Structure formats: structure tokens, C-alpha cells
Amino acid sequence: MPTEMTLRDHAREAVRDEVSKQAWALFARQGFEATTVDQIAEAAGMSRRTFFRYFAGKDELVLDRIVASGRLVADALRDRPADEAAWPALRAAFDQTVSLQEQHEDMSRRLQVMLRDEPALRTTVEARRRLWLELLAPLVAERLPRQHASSGSDLRAAAVTSSAIACLEVAQTTWATHPETSLAALLDEAMGAVNPLQ
């Protein structure tokens, strides 16, 4: 049974949200490597020491955002009609993150370039793939047709989910450097090119 958040928990989450907001604005303007913990702390109105009470480092700010967006997609996938096939259900679930990025397109494009180009974030990007795979693959497995193969649905679910995540990443990378394009349209094109379940 989940425990209710206390007033202190809510206050802590509010502070973490504000620090994250300030950090991502700085990352978008000047890049991840060029942004220091001191700059983030100053923008959030706190000391460096206080920053470390809330985050282990600036990498955690990126990972937190990735985990939160993965949970949004997982919740959306869980809410799709039970009889919808896995591939179109994944495409619809990705709308959660696509619409947020398109609403804040200038910042989102810069952040996608940062995730692509900054060597310090390569491990974090790989962590996103693993986290999203862990969140989404079990939900995808429930939507796959039953087979008697010894590999079971886990291997197929991992393959389908990994393919969909790769399509999203390709669409995001292309969108980041092509301002005239729509992320939703690019994702449709990428997923349409693979479309393993149709």
C-alpha cells in the first residue's frame, strides 16, 4: 500500500522541480558540460551545499527527467485499449513525450542536440534506453499474439520495444536540426518504415 506524501515530501519535490527547471533552462542555453553545479544552484536560489542535499550531481537531473518521461509513456501505454496491437499502442503512447517537446520546441531541440553531441551524456542516453525498455516491454508483452516458441513473449517484447524507442530517438535527432519539420510526423515516418506488427 503506497504511503501518502507528507508536507515535507511535497516541499522536497517542489524544490527538486524548481532546481530541475532551472538546470534544464541552463542546459538548453549553454550545454551540459558548460553548465556547472554552482550555476544551477545560483539560478535556483540556493547554495552548492544545499543543491547536493537534493541531487547527487547534474547527471541525476538528466536521469530524473528521463525516468519521469518514461513513466508518462508507460502510463499512456497502460491506458490504451486492451485490444490495440503493440506497435500502434506504442506510437500513441509516445504522444505523451512528443506533445511536450513540440510545445517547448526551441528548448527541446537544443536539449536533443545536447543529448546527441555531449560525450558526458552518452551513459545517460544509454540509461534511458534501458529504463524505458524495463518500463515498456512488460506492457508490450501483454499485447503480443501468443506463440509457442521457447523464447516466449519477453524476447519479442524487448525487440519490439527497442525498435520503437530507436524510432523515437531517430525522429528526435532529425527534428532537433530541422526546424521546419514536425516531430510527430517524423515519428510516424520512422515507425511506419519499421512497422513490424502490421
Rank of each mutant, 00 (worst) to 15 (best):
M1C: 07
P2Q: 10
P2K: 14
E4W: 09
E4N: 13
T6E: 04
T6H: 04
T6Y: 08
R8T: 13
R8Q: 14
H10F: 14
A11H: 12
E13G: 08
E18G: 06
V19Q: 03
V19Y: 02
S20I: 02
A23L: 09
A25I: 06
R29L: 10
G31N: 02
A34Q: 13
A34C: 10
D38K: 15
D38F: 12
Q39T: 09
I40Y: 01
I40D: 01
A41S: 08
G45P: 02
G45K: 10
S47D: 03
S47F: 05
T50L: 12
T50A: 14
F51K: 04
Y54I: 10
A56K: 15
G57Y: 04
E60I: 05
E60R: 11
I66C: 02
V67D: 06
A68S: 14
S69L: 12
G70L: 03
G70D: 01
V73E: 00
A76R: 06
A76G: 04
L77V: 06
A82S: 14
D83E: 13
E84M: 15
L90Q: 01
R91H: 07
A92M: 07
A92Q: 09
F94Q: 01
Q96Y: 01
Q96S: 09
S99T: 07
S99Q: 03
L100N: 04
Q103C: 03
Q103P: 01
Q103E: 10
H104P: 03
H104Q: 08
E105P: 00
D106H: 12
D106M: 06
R109S: 02
M114T: 07
M114W: 06
R116Q: 13
E118W: 06
E118L: 06
L121A: 02
L121E: 01
R122K: 14
T123K: 11
T124L: 15
A127S: 09
R130D: 11
L131Y: 13
L133F: 03
L133V: 12
L133K: 11
L133N: 13
E134L: 13
L136A: 03
P138R: 09
L139I: 05
A141Y: 06
S150N: 07
S151M: 11
G152H: 09
S153I: 05
D154V: 15
D154S: 14
A158Y: 05
A158D: 11
V160I: 14
T161Y: 02
T161V: 01
S163H: 08
S163G: 15
A164F: 01
A164L: 10
I165L: 15
I165N: 00
C167A: 15
L168G: 00
T173E: 08
T174P: 01
A176E: 00
H178K: 11
E180W: 05
L187K: 00
L187P: 00
L187G: 00
E189V: 10
V194C: 08
N195A: 05
P196L: 08
Q198D: 13
Q198A: 13
